[in-house]
Design a protein around this nucleic acid. Structure first.
Length: 258
DNA sequence: TCAGTTGTTTATAT
DNA sequence: AATATAAACAACTG
């Protein structure tokens, strides 16, 4: 389920359970998720290193390890699991970082994410690329600057990680529903006040979703009707419309989003 | 059997 | 240059 709030949750999870511990070794059950190293290479790089304070940029998780960095992306189905004791591995456990007092497991059902090692002489940005500012830390002015002048739809702009980092399919729908803006609306057709409304909705959705650790599916969220047989708008009761925008199934309310 | 799934990258077209 | 679309990656669910 990883979008920004989920990754933020795992960042806190790593800080709580793994930060400050020393690496004893690694166990790689599925080498395919190691994107720029081998099981042996990762073991050599991490062995003896102490894990530092994790940070997050968009959907990327960066964990300082010794003088280098362990970088993770979770794709669509990834996650982390801490266990204080050795436990049998499951099918989705791909990599285990063995630490003093427990192990941190990187899991990825569909293997769409990955784990990278960034050596002390390389840059994290070599792996994660040029990302826009983190969506959870953007001022109204910065949001205006980054978004204004775009020619595409507001939804694809929000999901473009080079414009701002962290917003995916479900979050973008939730934000635009809250802001009452149609996902297919051209950015160029939106008045400045409506761009500000999208920024305000983004802050609101992110704040509440981060507190929850993911996008809630409780009442009052568009996300709650996602996948329903006959979804209706949690705000006005009109039938929700779906269409593929930016290659993703998009939900919006034709009555209250204009 | 088939369509669909919270993400990114690549190729192709506009 | 920017944008849109589709496919690929992969494995599971309904």
């Amino acid at each position: 389920m990883p979008e920004l709030p989920d990754v933020e949750g795992w960042k806190r999870y790593v800080a709580r359970y793994a930060e400050g511990r020393r690496v004893r070794g690694v166990r790689v059950q599925d080498p395919r998720v190691l994107r720029n190293t081998s099981p042996q290479g990762l073991g050599r790089a991490l062995g003896g290193a102490r894990l530092g304070h994790p940070r997050r940029h968009g959907k990327w998780l960066v964990i300082p390890a010794g003088r280098g960095h362990l970088v993770m992306h979770f794709g669509m189905t990834g996650g982390l699991s801490w266990s204080a004791e050795a436990r049998a591995s499951g099918d989705r456990d791909c990599v285990a970082i063995l630490l003093d007092g427990g192990e941190l497991r990187y899991q990825a059902l569909r293997r769409l994410g990955g784990v990278w090692w960034v050596s002390p002489r390389d840059e994290v940005s070599d792996v994660i690329g040029e990302l826009g500012p983190d969506a959870a830390a953007m001022s109204r002015e910065e949001f205006r600057e980054r978004v204004a002048g775009r020619r595409g739809s507001i939804k694809s702009t929000l999901m473009n990680q080079a414009v701002l980092a962290g917003i995916g399919n479900e979050l973008s729908d939730e934000i635009l529903w809250l802001a009452r803006v149609r996902p297919a609306a051209r950015v160029s057709a939106l008045a400045p006040a409506r761009i500000d409304a999208v920024h305000g909705a983004m802050c609101d959705v992110l704040r509440r979703a981060m507190r929850h650790g993911r996008i809630p599916t409780t009442e009052g969220w568009l996300n709650a009707v996602r996948g329903a047989a006959d979804p209706t708008c949690p705000r006005c009761g009109a039938g929700i419309v779906t269409k593929r925008i930016g290659g993703r199934t998009t939900y919006w309310c034709p009555r209250c989003q204009t």
